[in-house]
Design a protein around this nucleic acid. Sequence first.
DNA 1: GCTATCCGAAACTTGGAAGTTCCGTATATG
DNA 2: CATATACGGAACTTCCAAGTTTCGGATAGC
Lengths: 218, 218
Amino acid sequence: MTQLDVDQKVADGAPKLGRRRDPAKDQQILDAAIEVLSETGFDGMTIDMVAARAGAGKATVYRRWASKNELVLDAVACLKKGDLDAVQIPDTGTLRGDLVGMIRPPTIDDAERKLKIMAGLASMLSSAPDLADAANEAIVEPRARINRMLLKRAVERGEIAADIDIQLVSLISPSMVAYRSLLQRKPVSRDFLITLIDGVILPAVGLRAAPAGSAPVE
Amino acid sequence: MTQLDVDQKVADGAPKLGRRRDPAKDQQILDAAIEVLSETGFDGMTIDMVAARAGAGKATVYRRWASKNELVLDAVACLKKGDLDAVQIPDTGTLRGDLVGMIRPPTIDDAERKLKIMAGLASMLSSAPDLADAANEAIVEPRARINRMLLKRAVERGEIAADIDIQLVSLISPSMVAYRSLLQRKPVSRDFLITLIDGVILPAVGLRAAPAGSAPVE
DNA sequence: GCTATCCGAAACTTGGAAGTTCCGTATATG
DNA sequence: CATATACGGAACTTCCAAGTTTCGGATAGC
């Protein structure tokens, strides 16, 4: 049962008398679920924790979601709304400028938060395909989408070749950042991101690290 | 308690009379643990399954490892012995040839097996740093080490620049393969690996996919 | 062959979390 | 104000796997 289903169900059986189900509470529970998930991981997370965090009773949670799995699935799916979409994408005139321009507080914080969520979800990724899809869609895709946009713009302005595999290149940084954070458990510092851009991504699309004056190598 | 500790303990308290502890059984249990882990994941895995698979009793497992966590930690740590080290590394004279040469049955199978183990471990990676280290060391590092060797050879023969960030580049394929398999759950086909080599890795070190104008694949 | 020890199997205890039920209270409708 | 419903909280049941104990049988040393 997804959140859409829940809404539908409420609309269907809306009571004519008495107290109505509070829609705001849904979001509070989803937010609490994401919080607890990122702090303790899926296995460590209990419904009691989520309920307490949301200022709700466990029964209230189960009145809206059939199981812990569906709650988490829904919480992750709802992540992709009101997201990075709002972030303004830099347009500096060069691909490197755009990529480096993405390294700043609001974007960084979002990434850090999502990495924790991803770490918390890790346990379920292999056993719950739905969840893996939702996680990919809500956590990695938004970032990859931005990268694709930046790359496409670079193609359009003739900065990089048109036959670049944009899909593949857009996944370089999400993949390597996730690896570094989740498996190596090393910090994803600004320096690391710069190194990634200059040492892998730009070369991969045929650009040198420093755009400054120096003639690019044909 | 690691396997080393166990061995030590056995050596210390070796009985002068009666039946001795069978050392071969240790390895059978560790192998069974890896098997079950890769099939069901850490959470789905029970000690009973491992014991049954190893043809042992649960008590026998607990006689040697204090807990499920330590068993898994030890099993993963013991993975890195008798491993890819034995695989012969190709030396084709070009970096691309070497990289493509790594795509063949023994290496592919090993990678596939390890990806399943990694997927099974995923749940514990964030909560158990020891385990994350062991997994990194046993699963990703061997592959990265080979990549570093191939890159270093390419530097030595003057094929690529000496200031390449070998450490970083050696992690491109492990990271992106893991992402594709675990999160996207798409197959890591030979085509994908070739695309990765030609579309990312070679450009990243300043090489074109196919030595320009010449015959593509020898 | 005697004995100390390990073995596999299975019964058992324990603990924790999922999911359910109940109750007194709050609140919107009418 | 009356009623129907959702609420928070807490007690409750159920289930599952970790970890323990016990047992008869096997096996290597003496």
